[in-house]
Simulated scan of single mutants.
Amino acid sequence: MRTLLRLFAVVALACAPAFVPAPALAAGGPQVLVVTTGNEEQEVADYAVERLHMEARRWNFTLIEGTPEDLEHLGAYDVVMFLNTGGDFLDEAQQESVETFVKQGGGLVATNTAIESEPDWTWFHESLSATALPRAEAATEESVNFNSGSQVTEGLDEELKLTERWYFFDPEPAQPGSTLLAQLGSGDAVAWVNEELPVFYASPGGEGKTWGDRDFLQLIRQAIWWGAGEDAAMVQNSDDAAPAWPYTLTFVLFVVAVAGGGSIAVWRLDKAESEREAAAA
């Protein structure tokens, strides 16, 4: 019985690090309120939020899922994200709250169908600096090229291939009001920022596979960092980084090794204790 108890204690100690709260959650990084109201594909939105939660744990920002009502009180947030939002999902007070938030330095990150949201909200569409034409009927694979020189595209040097129902714009974002960050091979805009306000938009994101792409997620997390006004380079939280080996296999081998060594030590202790008891008898 004593052997089992000691062995259990050894395994519990070995597993304990897996249940320690991620330090990224206590790091005090940017607070991001994400709203998906009115999206056309809930499964895509749910998957996108799931992937962004993983990015938040690894890259020291906090993602909070919210509703339009949460937009009325933005004092606790650094960035608001309209993830594939659609339709008239905000009332006048919520629009004014977001507008004031951005004018005072808060970041706004929008993706995909968000550019069609709130068609009568003049300030929002002026901030996005472009007008979307109807999306393509069918999804096609296109190459996306990134422009260097921006904090948002840092490290994104390779061509990215994404399959989307692509947006095209008329007018397109143009300087001096906007800085183009990415475009299709045809030259049509894909992602950009407002030069006067911390507003970022990326047209992809309507397909679940896009949110699983490493480079696209890097673009979005760096846009969040930029929108929050963070100038320093992002540093990955090593405790939450994916290990070189598959995590499950690594963890199992680790526990087996510790438990095996612990069981030998426990067996020796019990043997020595038994011998002392026999000698005393």
Results as ranks from 00 to 15, higher is better:
218 Q>T: 08
259 A>K: 02
223 A>M: 10
122 T>F: 14
254 F>I: 03
201 Y>F: 15
124 F>N: 09
232 A>C: 03
215 D>F: 14
204 P>Y: 13
262 G>R: 03
150 S>W: 00
242 A>N: 07
237 N>S: 02
230 E>H: 08
185 G>W: 13
132 A>H: 05
241 A>C: 06
237 N>Y: 10
172 E>R: 14
192 W>H: 09
196 E>A: 12
244 A>S: 09
188 D>R: 06
257 A>V: 06
136 A>E: 15
252 V>K: 11
153 T>G: 06
183 Q>Y: 09
147 N>L: 11
241 A>H: 05
125 H>P: 03
196 E>S: 13
169 F>G: 01
228 A>S: 06
147 N>W: 10
176 P>V: 15
234 M>D: 08
122 T>L: 15
248 T>D: 14
259 A>N: 04
208 G>Q: 09
151 Q>V: 04
171 P>H: 14
239 D>F: 14
176 P>K: 13
236 Q>P: 10
218 Q>I: 07
260 G>A: 10
169 F>R: 01
260 G>E: 09
141 E>S: 12
130 A>I: 02
136 A>V: 11
245 W>C: 03
162 L>P: 00
187 G>K: 05
198 P>Y: 12
153 T>P: 03
131 T>A: 15
215 D>R: 05
208 G>C: 07
179 T>V: 05
183 Q>C: 07
207 E>M: 10
231 D>G: 03
217 L>D: 13
217 L>H: 13
248 T>Y: 14
265 A>Q: 03
168 F>V: 12
263 S>C: 08
213 D>E: 10
219 L>P: 01
